[in-house]
């Protein structure tokens, strides 16, 4: 379990990092927190020829509020920084609620927001939560930058819309609407494990308590985080009721997802868990929005 030989660069500025990406592109891997990449390299599942360590870049771990764009988070912000951030707690409560579910404290001290999104592990929490929050991602290369909506970002198993020479620099999470509710939950074998199924719910209601906009997003049930489109649509203009929750949970678990089987959970069990979690989290999200 020793990695293959690789060349190691540690740029001290973004420009230098982008130059390196321009030069090496597909051969190179960005080293952020290393919590997925380094084990993969030790198992020789990943064998990058070039490693570009961006831990030397000073200005990439901010968490700040922006009047127009919501909460802006630098790609190198560690999970533990998100966990302790007042801005996140107040302005992105769904994210705040999610962080403790991610792995263990030691891993959260190293792992980064950007690393998790770019790695695009279908079993990871953050991609699903960002999908539920309608985040947008700022990508840079030597030629400039572009902003990609999270809905266009994930392209399949460990796949993203990033170009070979791009670096993710920032995530923007829009402001919460009024009468906002949210919930996160997952079922894992042990605390900190990858979930067998997880779900993030984000919604807001009108003055009469009817859902205006709601998003239900699953993870660990497909090749990428899965937006439960049919179920989410059923929320439209609805007041919360037992029947509604039951109906939506049924649709979400039977129509919106196509989970696979592995050694920890069969597809059938995953659907069952998706249903259980959908009901629980939707109820909690409504309760918060109506409070």
């Amino acid at each position: 379990m020793k990695p293959c030989t690789f060349e190691y660069y540690k740029p001290s500025s973004m420009e230098e990092a982008l130059d390196l990406m321009h030069q090496y592109g597909g051969e190179a891997k960005i080293l952020a927190g290393g919590q997925s990449l380094v084990p993969a390299m030790n198992f020789r599942l990943a064998t990058p020829g070039i490693l570009i360590d961006i831990n030397g870049l000073q200005d990439l771990s901010y968490i700040k509020e922006h009047r127009k764009h919501g909460v802006l988070i630098g790609a190198m912000a560690r999970y533990s920084e998100l966990e302790k951030s007042d801005v996140v707690a107040k302005k992105c409560p769904l994210l705040h609620e999610t962080i403790p579910y991610i792995a263990h404290p030691q891993i959260r001290n190293r792992g980064t927001m950007g690393g998790s999104l770019v790695h695009a592990d279908p079993a990871a929490e953050l991609p699903a939560v960002m999908l539920a929050l309608d985040a947008s991602l700022r990508l840079r290369n030597k030629d400039g930058e572009r902003v990609v909506a999270i809905t266009d970002f994930f392209t399949g198993m460990f796949g993203t819309a990033m170009k070979e020479d791009e670096i993710l620099t920032e995530v923007a999470i829009p402001h919460m609407p009024k009468r906002y509710g949210f919930a996160f939950d997952e079922v894992s074998r042990r605390h900190g494990d990858y979930a067998m199924v997880g779900v993030a719910v984000s919604l807001n209601v009108d003055r009469k308590g009817r859902c205006e906009k709601g998003k239900i997003v699953f993870f660990s049930v497909g090749d990428a985080p899965v937006f439960a489109e049919k179920a989410s649509q059923l929320l439209d203009k609805q007041n919360v009721s037992e029947e509604l929750l039951e109906n939506i949970a049924n649709v979400a678990s039977s129509e919106d997802i196509e989970p696979g089987s592995d050694i920890h959970a069969s597809a059938d069990y995953r659907r069952h868990l998706a249903k259980v979690l959908t009901k629980k989290t939707l109820k909690r999200a409504f309760d918060k929005a109506l409070a």
Binding site: F43, R189, R190, H191, G192, D193, Y194, I263, H264
Partner: peptide, 28 residues
């Protein structure tokens, strides 16, 4: 309740790491 070695029909061990071979932790 946690630990099981899974072999496929070819005798391949499917969970040869602590990510998938689950040991109980102090929480369990």
């Amino acid at each position: 309740f946690y630990e099981q070695l899974f072999f496929d029909e070819n005798g391949q061990l499917l969970n040869a790491s602590f990510m998938d071979y689950l040991l109980p932790t102090s929480l369990d």
